[in-house]
């Protein structure tokens, strides 16, 4: 084979290699999405049908998970949401001052907190805390054969480990979001009172008159979707751990990055459909 032909052959081979890589990655992505869907279906199956199979999801486990994922996240969610409320007030007043309409800042704060920042901040905090902890916990159990042990004892790992977390997250994330809404609004109120002299009562009246039930619901529906995304990504990364402690570390990092990306993208998609 002449050298020039050899060169073009090599290029074609490299190109083929890239196409092959792309194909493999696409298939991998489809497989992963399929796995997440199967995981969700199985978790929901045990939540609803476990009782009839005499293998119920333990209420005590659900409460333990609610404490772990929800109650212990209260301080940090409160602090961050309050700060976001203050920041929104600062930026809003600064922008609206150009038009001499700074007293309208309450509308901006109320809507953006309840529709967007409340669920988003809560989701990101919980993804960082619970998503990573789930991946680490389940990954460690995979490495130390605890998952196999559960399976051979006739205990379905998804029922025992995943369903309680999913249920707890579906309750606690919306609950935390409501608290985040309050904290954010409070942050906005504190700064507005300092800068514009709006009284708390007037601020509250304004918020109540601006907000519709739909705005709150929008945030709550989003938070339920985030709860599902965080749980599934954390658990799936945990179950797929290979290669000991290093693998657990990789899965933990991957689950946080993927969960936060998933939340933000899901948020964009939801906002698109709910507001058009």
């Amino acid at each position: 084979m002449p050298i020039w032909m050899h060169g073009s052959w090599m290029m074609a081979e490299t190109r083929l290699g890239r196409v092959e890589q792309l194909g493999k990655r696409t298939l991998g992505l489809i497989a992963e999405v399929g796995y997440l869907a199967a995981l969700l279906t199985e978790s929901l199956y045990w939540i609803f049908a476990g009782v009839f199979q005499r293998q119920p999801v333990r209420v005590s486990s659900v409460f333990a998970e609610m404490m772990r994922t929800g109650v212990s996240a209260i301080p940090i969610v409160f602090l961050l949401s309050f700060s976001i409320g203050v920041m929104l007030a600062i930026q809003g007043i600064h922008t609206l001052r150009t038009f001499g309409a700074e007293s309208q800042v309450v509308i901006g704060i109320a809507l953006s907190i309840s529709r967007e920042f409340g669920p988003l901040i809560t989701g990101i905090v919980v993804a960082g805390r619970t998503g990573s902890a789930l991946a680490a916990r389940i990954g460690t159990m995979v490495v130390s054969e605890e998952i196999d042990a559960l399976r051979v004892m006739g205990i379905q790992p998804v029922r025992y480990l995943v369903s309680p977390v999913l249920l707890a997250m579906l309750v606690m994330l919306p609950a935390l979001t409501i608290m985040a809404d309050f904290a954010g609004l409070l942050g906005g109120a504190v700064y507005s009172a300092m800068d514009l002299g709006i009284s708390y009562a007037a601020y509250a009246d304004r918020v109540i008159s601006v907000l519709k039930t739909g705005d709150i619901w929008q945030g709550l529906i989003k938070s339920a979707v985030f709860a599902t995304v965080i749980t599934l990504i954390g658990v799936a990364n945990g179950f797929s751990v290979t290669g000991g402690a290093e693998g657990v570390g990789r899965a933990t990092t991957r689950s946080v990055v993927l969960a936060i990306s998933g939340i933000v993208i899901a948020d964009m998609v939801f906002t698109w459909f709910l507001n058009r």
Binding site: S144, E145, E146, A149, L150, M153
Partner: peptide, 14 residues
């Protein structure tokens, strides 16, 4: 339920 297994590392839930 009729089978018991003892794993190499014990696999006790930590």
């Amino acid at each position: 339920k009729q089978i018991g297994v003892s794993f190499q590392g014990g696999a006790l839930l930590s």
